[in-house]
């Protein structure tokens, strides 16, 4: 699609959407959010960007991110397995606080799990949508 307005909007939306996705990802463990929804927000922005900027003749340049699916699967399953190696049940997560006083940040290994989920969602959503847009087999 070749539209000046759409290109400008997409350019503006992309960084905001990515920031928002990171915010959702970080607060996900204790509040509404998480890897899944952050992944959806990111893919929506990426797809909008691709729609606005890729002319039909340049389909070859559409994003190829299938790799992030298996990487994400490994990260998510891997965080669960760390606990098994330590003798706990699968998917047991650890929590710890960094810093002190009002600057304390609560961290947890669920964040890594969420990053895995995020990668899977981004990879599969973008691949699927790109396949619909492109008509040829995604590689």
């Amino acid at each position: 699609m070749n539209s000046f307005l759409l290109r400008q909007v997409a350019r503006g939306v992309l960084p905001v959407a990515v920031l928002f996705a990171i915010y959702l990802l970080l607060r996900g463990h204790d509040a509404p959010g998480g890897g899944f929804v952050a992944g959806l927000v990111t893919s929506a922005a990426v797809v909008l960007h691709a729609l606005a900027n890729v002319a039909p003749s340049e389909r070859a340049r559409r994003p190829r991110v299938l790799g992030s699916v298996w990487l994400g699967l490994l990260v998510a399953a891997g965080t669960g397995l760390v606990a098994v190696a330590a003798g706990g049940p699968f998917l047991t997560h650890s929590h710890f606080d960094v810093g002190s006083g009002p600057a304390t940040i609560h961290l947890s290994t669920t964040l890594l799990f969420d990053v895995g989920v995020f990668l899977v969602v981004v990879g599969s959503t973008i691949t699927t949508l790109a396949a619909f847009a492109g008509g040829e087999n995604p590689r």
Binding site: L66, G67, V69, W70, L71, L73, L74, A77, G80, L81, V84, P89, F90, R139
Partner: peptide, 23 residues
Amino acid sequence: DSLLVLIPVGLPLITAALLLPLT
């Protein structure tokens, strides 16, 4: 024991993730 319950689900999942880059 917990490994034995985990493997039927966990092992294929990890195998699938490892097979994907070999497409």
